[in-house]
Amino acid sequence: IFPSVLSPEQFVTTLIEAEPPNVLLMNRPNKPFTEASMMMSLTKLADKELVHMIGWAKKIPGFVELCLYDQVRLLESCWLEILMVGLMWRSIEHPGKLIFAADLILDRDEGKCVEGILEIFDMLLAATSRLRELKLQHKEYLCLKAMILLNSNMFPLTMGSDDPDSSVKLRHLLNAITDALVWVIAKSGLPYRQQSNRLANLLMLLSHVRHASNKGMEHLLSMRCKNVVPVYDLLLEMLNAHTLRDH
């Protein structure tokens, strides 16, 4: 389905249907955590979530119409932001806690056992409180998450793409998701002026998510280099995509 033929309402409905399932860690190590056991839990969970994230992206109307090269680049760029915004949404009703999964709920202070992670936990908690303050609605969250994916390219995608139509399609898709978010906010019944404020407030939060993701990527890379945690499978590929691009 080409996104331009979908109404904002239909677009949001497909986003609801595209939502990935909540992932469980399953074999959670006994508390207290060590640096290695916490990093192992977090990376195991991330690897599981990544598989569902790809399924989610494919269900966003128009995403699979982009060329494969663009699909790969977008997902490689934004995966940690998507994981983080999902974490924020799950944690929104639980001040001071990070709900990585129903069986992996961490208090802020538990971040002390992994070198350098407390700073990232605090960023995540701060962004989550801001979303709580704004009373982020589920449909708004779904639009923001799709927006992160579609807006994640830092370079002109066509540079290496074999399909020049793909970047035109991507721009259409970004307009469609913007329309969807504007529609969701308008439906809330806020006065017009407050609607623009809300839109701006929500979009401004995305730069905080990007910042936390950059810090998180740096941290995961250093944990891997110091051999604190082995990184494998899909997570390794996704981490390498960032490492290679930075050099």
Binding site: G55, K58, V72, E237, N240, A241
Partner: peptide, 13 residues
């Protein structure tokens, strides 16, 4: 990125 491409290419979920 082998696994990512593989997962994107599979049509069945």
């Amino acid at each position: 990125s082998h696994k990512l491409v593989q997962l994107l290419a599979t049509t069945a979920e």
